[in-house]
Structures are given as C-alpha cells and as structure tokens.
C-alpha cells in the first residue's frame, strides 16, 4: 500500500480531539489540536521535547486531573462522549483507556497481584487465574514468569517489567491503550519485543503511543501525528499539531516543511 490514498474504508473513530488546548494554571502547554484516532490502529505522536505530545496523551484518560491546575479547553470525545463532561467519572475512563508509562512501574507486589490489581478494584467476577494467564500471554510474558508468579514484580528485568505493566493494563479489559514512550528506558532487544507486542495487540485494541524514536514510529504505527513547539509572546513554549496523516505519508511525503525537516533529521 504505497502512496495509495485510502486503501481501505476509513475505520471507526474512537477518540476525537476537537480544537483542544491544554493549560497548567494560566500557562498554555498545547494549543488547538484537532485529530481523530481510529479503532484497531496504532497512532504515534512524535515531535521534539516539550511539544506537548505526552501532555495530550495524558488527557485521553484524564491522568492530567492529578496535576493541580491542569485543564482542557475544546473537546476530547470517546465514542462521541465528551470525556470532560461534568458527569464523566475519571475512574471509569481510566479503566477503559489504559496506560503504560515511560518507566516501568510495577507495584511492589507479586507478579500475580500486579496483573489482577485492576480486576480486583473493578470487582471482576470471572476467573482470576484465567485472566492472569490470558493477559500475560497477550503481553508475551507468560512463558517467562509462569513458574514464579508469586515473586515480586520488581524482581523482573526492565523489559519484563514493562511487559508486566502492559499485561496489567490489558487485564482491566480496556478499549484503548495509551503508551508514553514505553521503550525509552529499555535496551534494544527488550524494545524489539515490546514493538512486536504492539503489533499483536493492535488486532484487539486501539493504541496511541508517544515516542521520541522515529524509527519506532515507522515500525509500529499506522498513523503519525507530528507536534512542534513555538515560543509565545510571554516567552513560554506552546505545543501544536503540525501534521497528522498515515505514517507512510508523514515519513515519505509530508505536506509541511517542518515535518520534512524533522523526519529527515534536519531539525533544530
């Protein structure tokens, strides 16, 4: 599918960002983003440091609520429902829209307890052992840990810990998985494993991934959004969306010069 426009019918929109700006107190961190995120695709957010891609990602499951003074203007909808509507429970949002962090962050509990944590707090009625195995299998970690499920999650290697965190996110049965530079703390081999995993997971989940690594974006994503930052009159830097398209278009034939400069490494 080289250079062909719309090779298949446009898939369903899961997350829709309409003219969103994100503020910390009076400081605007991201301005006027409009983009759609499609079901069962991997969408990569790329761009230089401080361009607001992680900030935007954290707005998708309202993790930014935890930052005092953070607020969103404009609209972010999930299957048409405004995520920031008054009657939306952020706890429920985070269950449906899971998140994997930059640094692997297993709880200081056993592997077993880590994976079933979400199921426990969400009063999951089914079979925990089955949930555990399916989640760990999907995260490609089952074979490595099946004999030591009671060991601490912290005893695993960095790459294993990150896959444990992915398994933990999967076990809450989310619809969307957000990944905030999931490989930046990992070695190349672990990175490759996570990337393979993302390919597998795409069949069942919608994935949004923030990455610094452009090769990674080309390897894993279907669509790519390129963000950049510009100085404001107040001397702050505000992030904005430069271009959003199929990954092949962004990397081979971008419409904006800034995108071309960035993906070809002639940036800054």
């Amino acid at each position: 599918m080289i250079m062909t426009r719309n090779p298949q019918p446009t898939p369903k929109v899961v997350l829709q960002v309409q003219n969103a700006s994100i503020f910390y107190g009076s400081f605007r961190a991201v301005r006027d983003v409009t983009m759609d995120i499609y079901a069962n695709e991997v969408t990569a957010l790329i761009g230089p440091s401080g361009c607001g891609k992680s900030t935007l990602l954290r707005c998708f499951n309202r993790m930014n609520d935890l930052v005092p003074g953070a607020r969103v203007e404009g609209k972010i909808t999930y299957h048409g429902k405004d995520l920031y509507a008054r009657d939306v429970d952020p706890v429920e949002v985070r269950r449906r829209i899971g998140m994997v962090f930059q640094k692997p962050n297993p709880f200081p509990k056993s592997i077993y307890d880590n994976v079933v944590f979400g199921a426990r707090v969400n009063k999951y009625k089914g079979d925990f052992d089955e949930l555990l195995e399916t989640s760990l299998r999907q995260a490609a970690l089952w074979d490595e840990v099946k004999d030591k499920l009671q060991e601490s999650g912290l005893s695993l290697s960095g790459g294993q810990q990150q896959r444990l965190c992915i398994a933990r996110a999967i076990a809450t049965k989310p619809d969307v998985i957000l990944m905030d530079e999931p490989c930046s703390a990992l070695d190349p081999i672990s990175t490759l494993k996570i990337e393979e995993l993302i390919h597998e997971l795409k069949q069942n989940y919608t994935i949004v991934i923030v990455t610094h690594n452009m090769q990674q974006a080309t390897r894993v994503s279907d669509r790519t959004a390129f963000f950049n930052a510009e100085a404001t009159e107040q001397g702050n830097r505000v992030g904005y969306l430069v271009e959003y398209d199929h990954t092949s278009v962004i990397f081979n034939n971008p419409k904006q010069k800034a995108t071309m400069d960035y993906v070809s490494g002639r940036f800054g």
Binding site: V93, R94, R95, M99, F101, F117, V121, N122, R168, T172
Partner: peptide, 8 residues
C-alpha cells in the same frame, strides 16, 4: 499513577 491508570 500506575494504580489510577488502571481505573482504581
């Protein structure tokens, strides 16, 4: 953050 992101 880890716990909150899992819907706790």
């Amino acid at each position: 953050q880890g716990a909150m992101a899992l819907g706790a």
